[in-house]
Design a protein around this nucleic acid. Structure first.
Lengths: 225, 225, 225, 225
DNA sequence: TATGAATGAGATTTCATTCAT
DNA sequence: TATGAATGAAATCTCATTCAT
């Protein structure tokens, strides 16, 4: 598989001798493939369907990605890269720790709400026991920054004396992710069983506030401090 | 108890030994199908593979369930029935509200940890936009007791003055479910990315305590009360 | 195949010792089978579908008719018996020959128009190269009376000097049948291609008059005679 | 000539020898499929049987025609196209109207006698209530020329004063078609019941003469004119 | 690079028929 | 006579992948 470019997907065309369409063709395929796999899963996604919605042909999919699985992996890597990029764009270092937590929670929840494809791909990947994630050089070397961001905020809060309880950073991250993820990933079953649409703006707002409160509570945030 | 016992196909076989034994055949198929679908999803699951691991033939799958989708739906319904049964067996009515919450959280988390197949099926169903769930008369009339149980505890806690903050019951339920669900559903990607196995006993214990603390915090549990 | 009762299907129950339901069960099966085969053909008709619309079970179909083909044959025989019965009820012997021809043509056309199932079964049987017809003792011994009826009319007409041209009786019968049959059997393709519904009352009337005219013409009917 | 030549897929292969040769593959499949469907009907025809008698594989049938029904429709369209082509090749414009009628009747009867596959396919299609015909853009826009041809002859005959009776053109066409069609379509049942083989040359000749006479009679052909 | 045709293996589903009681 | 369960064989259709140019 010749795909594992650790540097995500930005690279603005490089101006080499090869036809300038190559990158565009690959991007076109990946965009469609992402929709297809997010919609139907790896087993349910159809190479034919992807090719049909692309400017190019099936042969090119194999030329560039080697196999259906190779394409799926590329899609997965791209999705994680985007998440990493979004995470690393947050600048919470100058905020009051409680406010930083609030903004981090909101950003995380919003990321998930706005990227249902990503959530679906992660669900799908877990159905496959994260087999592709595990096999991906790219993703294993991908530094997810969420923990670092959290670490900084918590350290500052503790130094300032506003966070008073000890809590494992990974647990804290899991907590924030779990709620954010569940709201999107389980939206359809939850909505069906309980009649609540978790996409509604005020439900969304309420859940973010709830999560912020819970997280601050776990950190032992002393409001008065 | 407002829960209308919609038959969950338990009834232990009226006449002991029947002729060619339809119930056993169906149960045999469903047991195997559940494994197959939970493992590979609806698209990835193979009717052939199911039949091969069964005492009967592929033909009988169609005889009893009509189609692969029909079988999947039957499996899904059964899985939800079991969860409902487990939920309704909890008797927390006599416990102190805080203790009841703790036990409810623990039971919920344990249910999920011990039923990874259920969690996977729900993920899969959400990938299908809960289409089968929505189409299932059985499941739509299935009274999920979780909310009732929660309602009772919260009402008692509030009456006793130990729960001091207002919180929506559905949000509370979502909160507990989300953490319980994510721990199992996203175990593989989380483990791969962060190097933590959420199945380990002490992680599990820690997460349950964390969730209990968070929930009690959201309820405004005043320990001294 | 135990079915070949030359005497068609009348026999009013016989009052023997056997369960009185036997004949009714058979008749029930045949009624449904006739619909099914007329609708979908021999290959397209489904034993399951027949059984499902019957008061009895699939097993009984095999008990009484031996096989799908046996049932089809029984249906075919019954259909031809009914036609024979209808034909033999015509009493044209006392009419003026030209009037008799007119009534015979009308009756034939009406028979076909009112028995689309029969027409369809005959089409289907011809698709099978009349294999079942050829193999049927019952039908081979069935005296189709159409030719006799025609023969009588033509003989009388010729004796009276009103039919002046010689014409083969079988050709004459073919002529009348062909138009009557085509109107029903090819109704759907004809209607689609030419936008004319041959079932409409005035089209039907027109065609009957046309056919009568043509037949009388072929017979050299001299009106003034 | 008001006939819009809707392409009937004739075009003799633009580039002589192509690469893997799609047209030949399709034509090969259709030739065999036509035999199979004409022989056994849509329900009775087997895709496997078609593939086996072809130079290619079953897979290609689905590649080119999508489904068994798609292939059947293609066969049906082709059969109708051929008929239209045959019809449009008749040049009766310069003949005496009575002679033109005779040749038209003979050609129509001959067409049917020489294309039993076409007749069988039309029977089969009528069993299906002309559902495929109705759904076929191609066939619905196919201008059947028979009526035009007839119209021209009748108009000339009337202008010349040799055709003296008014008659609906569609009825006239129905008449000619019905006899021609019945002779082939119902050959087997008719032969079985009445012991006459309608394929025999002198029967065929006799029927053509009979039909010509009847048609001219309906037109009020005055020989002396 | 690019393309349309081709394909083998295997997927789901169907069907007439029979068995056990 | 009656019934529901069972079945083997074969039907239709699908899919990722590769070939020839």
């Amino acid at each position: 598989m010749k795909v594992s470019k650790a540097r995500c997907m930005s690279e603005p065309a490089e101006k080499t001798t090869r036809r300038p369409d190559a990158e565009r063709t690959k991007a076109d395929i990946m965009r469609v493939a992402r929709e297809e796999f997010a919609e139907h899963g790896l087993a349910g996604g159809r190479v034919d369907a992807i090719a049909a919605r692309t400017q190019t042909t099936k042969r090119m999919i194999y030329y560039y990605f080697g196999s259906k699985e190779g394409l799926y992996l590329a899609v997965l890597e791209q999705a994680y890269c985007e998440i990493r990029d979004r995470e690393s764009k947050l600048s919470l270092a100058t905020l009051h720790p409680a406010e930083a937590i609030r903004q981090l929670v909101e950003a995380t929840a919003d990321h998930h709400d706005e990227s249902p494809d990503f959530v679906r791909l992660v669900c799908i990947e877990n159905i496959h026991y994260a087999r592709y994630l595990k096999g991906s050089e790219t993703i294993r070397t991908l530094n997810l920054t969420a923990i670092d961001t959290l670490a900084d905020i918590v350290a500052r809060g503790r130094a300032m004396g506003v966070f008073t309880k000890p809590i494992d950073l990974l647990d804290l991250h899991m907590f924030i992710s779990a709620i954010s993820f569940y709201r999107v990933g389980n939206r359809h079953s939850f909505g069906t069983l309980f009649g609540q649409d978790m996409g509604e703006p005020d439900v969304r707002t309420r859940h973010k506030r709830l999560l912020t409160d819970a997280v601050l509570g776990l950190l032992g945030y002393a409001e008065a401090a």
